[in-house]
Amino acid sequence: MANDHVDEFEAQRPRLFALAYRLLGSAGEAEDAVQETFLRWDAADRDEIRVPVAWLTKVVTNLCLNRLDSARARRENYVGVWLPEPVLTDSEPGPLATAERRESVSLAMLHLLERLTPPERAVFVLREAFSYPHREIAEILDITESSSQQLLHRASRHLQGRPRFEPSADARREVVERFLDAARGGDIAALERLLADEVVAYADGGGKAKAGRYPVLGSKKVARYMAGWLRVPLPGLEIRFAEINGQPGILGVVDDRLLIAVLVFDTDGERIHGLHTVANPDKLAHLGAQLSLIPRSWNAML
């Protein structure tokens, strides 16, 4: 059939997107990388492609590595804190939603991966999130197997001490509900009890929406910061629960159609160790499309 190669690619698209998203931290750029991979696939001589899955993985990985070099330069001039683009992971099963890969797609982990060089990030993602053996990683990246092992060792050292939580979905949801009740009620003491001493709150407005330009550290400061942020009066605002990047999150939706912010929680089921707020409307486009909502800057609503 003339379209067999298209069907073959489409069967791989979710996995390719999941890989590209983890490498880039941007849903929009991941979609672009996957589409460029398709164009190369469409133009390729398939008689020379012995293992299509391996060929596609190699192409999309190297396209992402090229994009990471330019992305790093752009992020140096980013206004305020840079956070990855959030994605919905509770709408359907797939490479982004599987439980065993939840940590590798969390906003906290994607944020930490910014510490790595592009090759370190590629090896770490291929090995830890997709369980590729070093022999295959070496073929994808055109390096030796020992180089792949060394890159993974360096990446793991850079990420040492990262929190790893495996609470039940019910426990995570309960903590978030208690947090919201306390924040909206202005109960600072209750908020502090829910926050770990070393908690950090990040907010990404990209200069296009209201957001703090620096992380907020410590339970006392974060409690006051979040209570003030969540109590801002905004007509038509509705708070909705969702699973974002494998973690419990809340959506700020105005008039049932405008997505103005996403807040994602890192929690061990008892205390909250990190909060990631994304309000930059450019970074809400993919999630908005998943939810059939329109991203809007909060500044435009005030």
Rank of each mutant, 00 (worst) to 15 (best):
D32P: 14
N245I: 03
E166P: 01
I188S: 02
L230R: 01
S168R: 15
L23E: 09
K58V: 05
G205Q: 04
R224M: 08
L291M: 09
L217K: 14
H286L: 11
L39I: 07
T267C: 04
Q12G: 03
S131Y: 12
A73K: 15
Q35N: 10
R213W: 11
A183K: 00
S156V: 10
L180R: 06
E114K: 14
I250P: 01
R40E: 15
L152D: 15
A129H: 04
H5R: 12
P118Y: 04
V81Q: 15
I260C: 07
D142Y: 13
G94F: 11
D255K: 13
D197M: 10
L39D: 08
D42I: 10
V253W: 09
L107C: 06
F17C: 09
G252A: 14
D4K: 15
R157M: 13
I140T: 12
G269C: 05
D32K: 14
A261I: 03
L195V: 06
Q247H: 13
G228L: 07
G274D: 00
E139S: 14
I239G: 04
W41Q: 05
R178L: 13
L65I: 04
D204V: 08
T117H: 08
H158W: 13
V81N: 10
P86W: 08
E120P: 08
V262K: 05
T144R: 12
W298Y: 12
E31T: 02
T89F: 01
G80T: 02
R101M: 12
A44G: 01
V216W: 00
F179E: 02
I250H: 02
D47E: 14
S91E: 13
L237T: 11
D170A: 13
P84R: 08
E166F: 10
V87N: 02
L194A: 04
Q149L: 10
E128G: 04
V216P: 01
V105F: 08
D266I: 07
D266S: 10
R213G: 12
A33K: 09
D268M: 05
R127E: 12
S146F: 12
A203Y: 04
W298K: 10
G274E: 01
M301N: 09
V34T: 06
S297T: 03
Q290F: 03
E85I: 03
I137R: 00
D282K: 03
P215Y: 01
R127T: 11
E92L: 13
T37N: 09
P281C: 06
V60E: 05
V254N: 03
R271K: 12
R75C: 02
S146Q: 15
T267N: 03
A27E: 10
G185S: 08
A289G: 12
G80M: 03
G206E: 01
R184V: 08
V59F: 06
D170L: 13
R121P: 06
R135F: 09
R115Q: 10
E198L: 00
E103W: 09
W41L: 09
P84C: 07
L19P: 02
A138D: 05
S156F: 11
D47M: 15
L159Q: 13
A99N: 08
D4G: 11
R13C: 07
H134R: 01
L258Y: 13
S104E: 13
Q35F: 14
D197W: 06
D197K: 14
P84A: 12
L56N: 00
